Amino acid sequence: MKRRAFIKTSVLGTVAGVFTGTVQAKMTTPSEVEGPFYPITPQKDQDADLTRVAGKEGIAKGEIIDVFGQVLDTDLKPVEGVTIDLWQANSFGKYHHPHDTNSAPVDKHFQAWAIMQSGAEGQFKFKTVIPGAYPLGRNQQRTPHIHFKIAKNGYVPLLTQMYFPNHQLNEQDGLFRRKSVAEQAMMTAKLVGKNNQYQYDIILEKV
């Protein structure tokens, strides 16, 4: 009887695991609000290295990181040629935006905005700094995050935000807390190794 119970439990566990994996594969990256600071100031330098600005000597202040990942469809097949438009606050929590009245300093060596396309295997990579938290009123802060606008013909456009694992402000952040545990997991990058590398994969839905 014990052996039968063990076999039954094992089979049910395997089926549950397959079902969970299937659900995860079909789930797209959750959407999020654009926020008030999408870049509106024209800039020529929009490459994948946000830690330097073309024509200026110097490196952005803050903890430099590499973010890499793949853009996939809901069948987990790579999607090539996706436009990835990303922007974020600098390490002080200041956006390079004329409407950001935060008293934190502007970092003239931080690019703040990048536009790139995914490669043949859906891959992308960029260098940046961990964004600082920025204030929301007197006693609140938004947890550090990076904004993404992602688009390609034949796929549903995605507007989302990438969060950082185990950050102390995540659980206090209103937008982060509104998401389910599964959604939070999909929107949170994974720290890979010890070299400040973060993996962030994006799943799009076909039209």
Rank of each mutant, 00 (worst) to 15 (best):
D173Q: 10
G154K: 01
K152I: 05
L191N: 02
N196D: 10
L158H: 09
P157K: 12
L175C: 09
H167F: 15
S180W: 11
V156E: 15
N170L: 15
S180D: 10
V192R: 02
D173A: 04
I146V: 14
Q168Y: 08
G193P: 07
K152P: 02
E205V: 00
V156N: 09
K190L: 09
G174N: 10
Y163Q: 07
Q172T: 01
Q184D: 01
E205P: 00
N166D: 13
L169V: 02
Y198R: 05
Q172Y: 13
Q161E: 12
T188K: 09
V156M: 06
I202L: 05
L159P: 00
L169D: 13
L158C: 07
Q184M: 09
I202Y: 15
Y155C: 03
G193M: 05
N195C: 05
V156K: 15
R178V: 00
N170M: 08
Y163F: 15
K206G: 13
E171W: 15
V192A: 04
E171M: 10
L158I: 11
M162L: 13
D173Y: 12
E205A: 03
D173H: 14
Q172S: 12
Q199E: 06
Q161W: 12
M162S: 11
Y200M: 04
R177M: 11
F148T: 00
K194W: 14
L158Q: 10
G193T: 06
D173R: 06
G154T: 02
L204Q: 03
Y163W: 15
M186G: 05
K179Q: 03
L175D: 11
L169A: 05
R178T: 00
N166K: 15
E171F: 13
K149S: 01
K190E: 14
F176D: 03
K194A: 08
G174C: 03
G193C: 01
E183K: 08
E205F: 04
M186A: 15
H145F: 11
E205H: 05
L159N: 15
L159E: 09
Q172A: 08
S180I: 05
N170G: 08
H167I: 10
S180Y: 07
K194M: 08
N170I: 01
A151W: 03
N153C: 08
V207N: 13
Y155N: 09
Q199S: 02
R178S: 06
Q172L: 12
T160S: 15
D201I: 02
Q184S: 03
M162D: 02
G193R: 09
V156S: 14
Q197F: 03
M162I: 11
I146H: 04
V192Y: 01
I203D: 09
